[in-house]
Design a protein around this nucleic acid. Structure first.
Lengths: 241, 241
DNA sequence: ATCCCGCCTTGACTTTGATCAAACTGCGCT
DNA sequence: AGCGCAGTTTGATCAAAGTCAAGGCGGGAT
């Protein structure tokens, strides 16, 4: 095993992605300087508004992207309109499904989103030449799989109240992963309707459970989007995580 | 790109795994003859009965395994005993979580299961030396992710009746992937209790919905485990897939 | 054969969350 | 300011699934 390979496998220091002009753990971290330079030429930065479809039925999926900022929701829809959010992606996640163009999932911007996108063909080519890239993809895919399975437990076995607490905990800890103690406030990246689709509930039930948590003093609702959590431990408790 | 690399990426012909004495799409497909020989020395075939824990709290996860036959259920459990099956694995799936020992999931034999297991350290070492192996793992992980997300839609948005039909369709099509038309009969690999844990329902609800499908002529229940489906299309329809 | 035990089914009733409907809030617009 | 609108909250009612309880079925052991 050469030193370079070892380095990639043992370290999780994000590398500089010149194409995105940002440090992140997206695909770029595995690339050589030469590859980054050529990627740089083909990549485009985009800013999209909330609600815009990034990958799906209408948008042909001929590109991958790194998320620079914002939140992307991955949604599955049934023929009759029922829908379920099957994943949320934050910076610096990688957006796109390798080796396949359709997975029956659409990706929409939940908030304003900045992405750096590049041609799918280019990345697919680099994957074949660069094992480190495949390693990065495997790590992200495993992370997404863990998250999906955690959420399956929430969808299948938790009560409405536990679901809402789980969602708020998820966002709270994601916004501030290094939190220790004391109050914490943050902006919800989703509307009530999106939260309902993420939790497998209706908007009315989400609203009622939020109200319940507010009345019990577990959360403070500043406005529809801004939430304050005086004691995260108490919220996490409600989630029965 | 050398020919060998290209071959692995473009072909999905299962290779002979000498360690398992079986052709399958598990990890062995990516290995060289030398690697297979050394794997052969360290691997052990095991037959385990239904209900036995393969990976989890008690069983220290220091090994990976290929499933030779049988069905393995991946379960998440809450502190109060509620549990959710987050995945089913069939031959020739690969069993084990790379790069991490605990993922909060236990793997139990749902039926009698035959596995071929090898030391985790050995595979982890081979992963670093053999990009093709990592490619195989990525493919399986993506498949599991797709399945998990499909199931999230089922858990979050389908009715009890649709859930049961979805489960039966899943098993029916898995048992006989090349099915065209005409009646189809198969053995359920799970108990009612397991089915309930997979669907996020109670055993009573599962039982009632099975009875309903039986009375409507969509399925015939030979005995608790044996089910006959006269017209698969009609069942799939009920699943609102 | 009979008993036993695990697994499954069925019935009566309760609870949770969905549905339907109405009203409220914040915000951009004229 | 007043209007309109999207998003949210709240209330009343309803239906779906859960809970509790009893009984049936089948396979293995004595």
């Amino acid at each position: 095993m050469d030193a370079k390979r070892k380095d990639i496998h043992n370290s999780d220091i994000p590398l500089l992605c010149r194409a995105c002009e940002a440090r992140h753990q997206g695909v770029c971290g595995a690339l050589s300087t030469d590859q980054l330079v050529s990627l740089n030429k083909q990549s485009t930065r985009k800013r999209v508004n909330s609600g815009v479809e990034l990958i799906g039925e209408t948008q042909r999926t001929d590109s991958y992207a790194n998320i620079i900022s914002g939140v992307v929701k991955l949604t599955k829809m049934m023929a009759d309109g029922r829908q379920q959010i099957v994943g949320l992606q934050f910076a610096p996640d990688f957006l796109g499904r390798p080796f396949r163009s359709d997975s029956g999932i659409t990706a929409d911007a939940a908030t304003e989103v900045n992405i750096c996108s590049f041609p799918k063909a280019m990345i697919d080519r680099m994957i074949k030449d660069t094992p480190e890239l495949e390693h990065k993809l495997l790590e992200q895919t495993l992370k997404e799989l863990d998250e999906a399975r955690d959420w399956m437990l929430t969808l299948g076995r938790k009560t409405a109240s536990e679901k809402v607490a789980s969602f708020l905990s998820l966002i709270a800890t994601h916004i501030n992963p290094e939190w220790e103690s004391g109050p914490l406030s943050f902006e919800l990246p989703l509307t009530r309707s999106d939260i309902a689709d993420f939790l497998g509930l209706t908007i009315e039930t989400v609203s009622r459970q939020m109200t319940k948590l507010r009345k019990e003093g577990v959360i403070v609702i500043r406005n529809n989007r801004m939430v304050e959590v005086p004691d995260l431990a108490r919220l996490v408790e409600r989630a029965s995580a």
